[in-house]
Design a protein around this nucleic acid. Structure first.
Lengths: 204, 204, 204, 204
DNA sequence: AATGAATGAGGCTTCATTCAT
DNA sequence: CATGAATGAAGCCTCATTCAT
């Protein structure tokens, strides 16, 4: 339950609820997910959910909130490392592609909102997501400024790279569509493409 | 109602229903979309919907089916052009980035299922999506074979390019997040990145 | 279509409608029966039904009306025969147990209302059924008066006999429950029981 | 609520629901009966019905199930009495003709299915009704074997007697049709006819 | 006289939410 | 803090009925 990303302090029950809810929302979507089932999965009674969250929407937003905070913790950690921009990118890639399994539901929900226009609560989501750091954007921008990377649209490239990473996580992809790249080749592939996109010179 | 992509022959009522449904499903998702409202939007009574589609699910699948067929028509057209692989890619990029406005809802639904693990009817969706051509994958594969492009993962790169294009359509993005690239720079940006990814030599 | 009981003059289409409706109502009940299906069975379009009957209820009452009239025709015929009361009973038994197959649905509807408190339109039904002759009641009453039969409740015994006859028609019985008496023994059995009930002396 | 026939143990709410449902189904039939109204009659909210029964059909079958069990309890009691077959018949007649008023709806539903080919759920009904004891059939068969009664069709005569009893309960009859026999003469009349049918010698 | 496309009232059912314990 | 029995709003779907042709 406490993956590397979890630093937030909160009562265990609330956390269990967030994880159970994340699984349900990721698998079934907001409307189809069932409060009763989420409660059971969290080892709680149906009514108890309402002691922690005002209603279903608040629970959903709580999950998203937790996701953003967790991602930010990871980002903060990487951004504070005393390494080159390229090495930071390597860190982000590695971190993203080796996330703990029980964090996948949060990743799924994040991807749904980050890239493809999920329908729930645009306004509230915008507010929560405004707090989300985009380390790749920051790194690319810094790298461009320092002449390490070359691109005219640093921020956009940050998102393009993010999207690339998302495509390499099979759990984020539909069963049909893209072929699955073997686990051990994902980082290599990703870094290879990123290098091309950012015009990074191979070897000095 | 008849954008460039619409070639299918069908009763006007059914078509109006598909467009109204696509708008509703894209905006609100399957569960939240309201049959009654869709009917009204299509200028029909609630009950009339059921003359054309057996139930809400069938309506949803009908929309997806229509989307796939429309995309395939576009793909067929481009793939039949007697031009180089790179020029075909230019065609795909251009077509994708200038889709008719009333096709956007279909595009939204497509993206939701293509990239991010929508929860609706996985089995039925898989069957319908198995018919979807991926012209970019085909073009990249052909280009690699003919020495025009260079990559070790042609199919994956096809999807990466697709994802890149999706990111450049503001209607597919959440209001927060990625900055919007001006309309007239999108193709240039896209082609620039694609060239790098595929290792295409810049004309002298 | 024109069994022995049909004497009423009416347009063929209306008659076909009555027969189709009788089959549907008998098999599925008033609520479950489907106007569209009845129309098809009668070789008519859905809308045409409403040229002959104001609505579903009127169609149902039309069927009942037709049933009553048909039964009365049979009764009138038998009651006019110049034979003994016992021979009239034999006639009724014979007629009842050898009704034309296509009259069975009407028989079913009649039984449903005669004996067991069907729920539809009590008021209207009462009015229509008030026209129904009960030849067995009349015969028993006459027989008692003439010393041919012996019972203190002639009318009730008329209904008891009627009920007995209904029990001997397999199409009126549920698939579980009462055993089916072979066709050729039904009259014998019925007459035997009736004789006992009415205290008719065996042989002269 | 607890008539002589009620022995089953079950939550009060479920029982109230069964009684309210029985009344509604008996009066209006399966289709016309309204779940919302049944719930109100039982002093419950609409949604509560679904805590006890999966759907309308299950509620209906629940009522039938309860009916069969109740009847069987009565039958078991009578069949266990250490008295002659004729006295058992007297018991059945008495019991049948003095059933508690609030059991009448169950009686109505029973009669509808026992005798007249109700249209609801033939398959499920057959299964439930296969559990229904027919004490009259059993008694007649025993009586014939012991030389107490005389008939060639014991089982059929059991049903004939049952039908006779049903005719003597005014609540089972339509308002038109058979005349109502005064309450205090019903047993006498029934036993008189039964004696004749079964060839029982009149006491000297 | 005949049709069937279109309609919308009505009813079953689900499930988020409440609240007495 | 915890519970789950009870609720009723909301929405899908059916089908009798209408009406333009």
């Amino acid at each position: 339950m406490k993956g590397a990303v979890v630093i937030l302090e909160m009562p265990t029950k609330r956390l269990e609820l967030l994880y159970a809810a994340a699984r349900a929302f990721a698998e079934q979507g907001f409307d189809s997910a069932n409060i009763n089932e989420i409660a059971s999965q969290a080892g709680l009674g149906k009514g108890t959910v309402y002691l922690y969250f005002a209603n279903k929407k608040a629970l959903y937003l709580g999950v998203i909130e937790y996701t953003v905070t967790s991602f930010n913790n990871l980002a903060d950690h990487i951004m504070a490392l005393p390494v080159s921009n390229w090495e930071k990118i390597e860190q982000v890639v590695h971190t993203f592609l080796t996330l703990d399994e029980e964090f996948i539901p949060f990743l799924t929900l994040w991807a749904r909102h980050q890239f493809h226009h999920a329908t729930e609560f645009q306004e509230d989501m915008a507010q929560i997501f405004s707090r989300l750091r985009q380390p790749l954007c920051e790194i690319v921008a810094a790298g461009v400024e320092q002449g390490e990377f070359h691109t005219e649209y640093p921020e956009t490239m940050g998102y393009v790279i993010l999207s690339l990473l998302a495509m390499l996580v099979p759990e984020l992809q539909v069963p049909y569509g893209m072929p699955t790249i073997p686990r051990d080749q994902r980082s290599t592939l990703a870094l290879d493409v990123i290098r091309k996109i950012l015009g990074v010179n191979l070897e000095p």
